[in-house]
Design a protein around this nucleic acid. Structure first.
Lengths: 128, 128, 128, 128
DNA sequence: GTGGTCTAGACCACC
DNA sequence: GTGGTCTAGACCACT
């Protein structure tokens, strides 16, 4: 499914969260699709189940997945509630990064075309 | 100069690094301008000098400031060499953020106008 | 493992870095091998853990080791990216030293045979 | 004559020593030639005379210059006494550097031709 | 007075 | 137990 980098300073559970989000955002995992159980994933990644548990718990809090007792964990359909704060957070990060890139003389057009490329790719996925 | 958030989980020295970078990137602090001494800043922020020292050392390693024995620390003029890898890094982060924002239905035009605003502000600063 | 010289003017953490580098370069410590923990080494050298921490952190920044939370520190396998600048740096230092040695009438053949000896020793290690 | 780099972490007096040595080694300054007085050099470099004083004192101890009261400082002709320890020191440094370069896969031939180049250049200077 | 090094001792997150 | 962060307080070299 994905691989972790033990050398990263980032905690393992954060790496798992990030990878999972990428799979959801890129629509590899579709809404209401089942994701691996805590034990399954712990085994394939050969790490402690507690670490997976923590990652899943936070993903649930952020509204990316939901868990059904005795059934498993599933990709959450996009809901309004959890979106706003996360979006604000991301906008702030974006501003910081763009500010630093402009400081480093990255051309403005470059960034704009990057954004356009990402949005167009997303358009394509919709048709799946 | 700026304030720290003790409740934040982010280490103090990282917060200092970040704030300092912002001041440099936004050209509030100009190249070769002196920044507060380790002890001064420690006193005004009421934290330990070692923490400032650590932040300054890393800012130096990353090429944002340079330190002169018995004189103080100064804003480094932008140099060619360290730019490339840092820019690549930032581009990757940007792509991740934009991908997630597009997933959260942030309108493309919003992001583009954000970028344009940041670049125009920078143009203004040039005339100082 | 190695010993420090407290009388030396060189900072302790630099001495540690240097010794560690030697062990890595000479292949006494192999890639992905675990090195002593911060606390272990601090105890055996009877110096403060912070000093070891600092040395290890810099060794990590320079690409010689990597650290894994809650596991320990490990010898980094040689990676392509950080090599070039370091090699350029070393070449310059070498030139200065050779220039001074030639001024002191060190015979050229002496230096060349020194180099050949070092490279042959390295060849031997390869077979391990 | 030469320039100093205030940003270097190396102390100013060491930078002065190094630059001076280079001029002597490269035979820009010939034996028994007069070098700038402490005050002169302090003025042209716009630094404190004490710093120059310290550099000259150490250069004298290492046998590179000699000072004559009320006359000035002069390049020392090469003498036997101070050579041995300095040469041993340099050999050790050379070995360390070559070991690291071999670790970084620098080709052996490269180093040898570097040495040959430096020695040949020196041969040329002899005829001056 | 400045940056830099070091110690002693504490607490936290992670696994 | 491991790496990482932080404080308090000391000392040194440099200018």
């Amino acid at each position: 499914m994905f691989q972790l980098d033990l050398r990263e300073s980032k905690p393992l559970y954060e790496q798992i969260k990030e990878k999972m989000k990428e799979l959801i955002i890129s629509a590899v995992l579709k809404p209401d699709e089942r994701i691996p159980s805590v034990r399954e994933l712990a085994q394939t990644l050969t790490i402690n189940p507690n670490t997976i548990q923590k990652a899943y718990k936070e993903l649930e809090n952020e509204g990316f997945i939901y868990s059904v007792r005795a059934k498993g964990n599933f990709v959450a359909p996009l809901e309004q509630k959890a979106i706003r704060p996360r979006r604000d957070e991301l906008r702030k990060e974006l501003e910081k990064i763009v500010a630093e890139l402009s400081y480093l003389h990255e051309p403005e057009e470059q960034l704009i075309s990057t954004i356009q490329a990402i949005y167009q790719e997303k358009e394509g996925k919709k048709d799946d």
